[in-house]
Design a binder for these strands. Structure first.
Length: 274
DNA sequence: TGGCCAATACTG
DNA sequence: CAGTAT
DNA sequence: GCCA
């Protein structure tokens, strides 16, 4: 279990504790510890047993040390598992909706046993949020708008983040002999504020026959930071990068590169119109 | 043992 | 205006 | 929960 995973569990536990109505300062401690672990240069798993070193990390004390031992020892945190049984995982997503906090989520849960985005949206539309204590028309309206906003940006990445990622990948591709061009298409090329996934078009001699294409794809999957291959075909490979960004790389013969660029830059609506 | 972030929006 | 949630 |  790496530091990122440990921190993740701690963050999640904090969120769940919040819904559970736990002491806010204790919750903060969980978040502080998570941050400290995330930023720590060495792997916590390598330091287990060395209490001195662990306690030396600011934000890690007696109690958190026990939590770490439990996580690394049993592979799970009891508190985390219990809270997950008591509540619903979908509540963690709900927490990401601006203006929707733990108290309100718990309130909605207690009143309607609803814990997901869809359900809360329906309740709001039906005017069932405003009748809850402490809620009102303002809250309900604002909630609807917030859900809309959330849906619009969820699972998308800011343009500059996407650009850097795309540039790294394109560089990696261009280092391969037989690749002439590697260019991002899609919403990134259209300059949208956010990007859902990357679409990168490649062309050159290496794209021209089957064996060459396979060799090129073999090179592509060595890309640093590549986490999972989603699909691997003749002319296209899809994978997920560290950070969860999905990437499609398409190999194109030089004579179809132009039209492909046109097509994959979109937008879909634009293509339909054409 | 006691303190741990402040400002804002909304409800009652 | 005070209390509460974000 | 952690820290002074």
């Amino acid at each position: 279990m790496d530091n990122k995973s440990i921190a993740g569990i701690l963050y999640e536990t904090a969120d769940l504790m919040e819904i559970d109505g736990a002491d806010s300062f204790r919750i903060r401690s969980y978040r502080n510890a998570a941050e400290a672990i995330e930023a720590h240069p060495q792997q916590i798993s390598d330091l287990i047993g060395n209490d001195k070193q662990l306690l030396a990390i600011s934000g890690i004390g007696k109690g958190m040390l026990q939590n770490l031992k439990e996580m690394l020892g049993e592979g799970r945190l009891k508190l985390h598992a219990e809270l997950l049984t008591k509540y619903r995982p979908s509540m963690l997503q709900l927490l990401k909706v601006q203006g929707l906090g733990p108290k309100t989520i718990a309130l909605i849960w207690s009143a309607y046993q609803v814990s997901d985005l869809e359900g809360v949206e329906s309740l709001a539309r039906e005017g069932k949020i405003r009748i809850l204590p402490r809620m009102g028309e303002k809250h309900e309206t604002k909630l609807l708008k917030a859900i809309e906003d959330y849906r619009r940006i969820a699972g998308r990445f800011l343009i500059d983040v996407a650009e850097k990622q795309a540039e790294k990948i394109a560089d990696h591709l261009r280092h391969y002999p037989g690749v002439e061009k590697a260019t991002p298409a899609g919403s990134l090329r259209r300059g949208r504020e956010t990007v859902g996934d990357l679409d990168i078009l490649v062309t050159g001699p290496a794209c021209c026959d089957d064996t060459e294409r396979q060799k090129l794809i073999d090179h592509i999957i060595k890309l640093p930071g590549l986490m999972e291959i989603i699909a691997r075909g003749e002319n296209k490979i899809s994978f997920r990068m560290r950070g969860d960004m999905q990437v499609d790389v398409r190999l194109l013969a030089p004579d179809s590169f132009g039209s492909a660029m046109q097509y994959f830059t979109g937008s879909k609506a634009h293509n339909v119109a054409l």
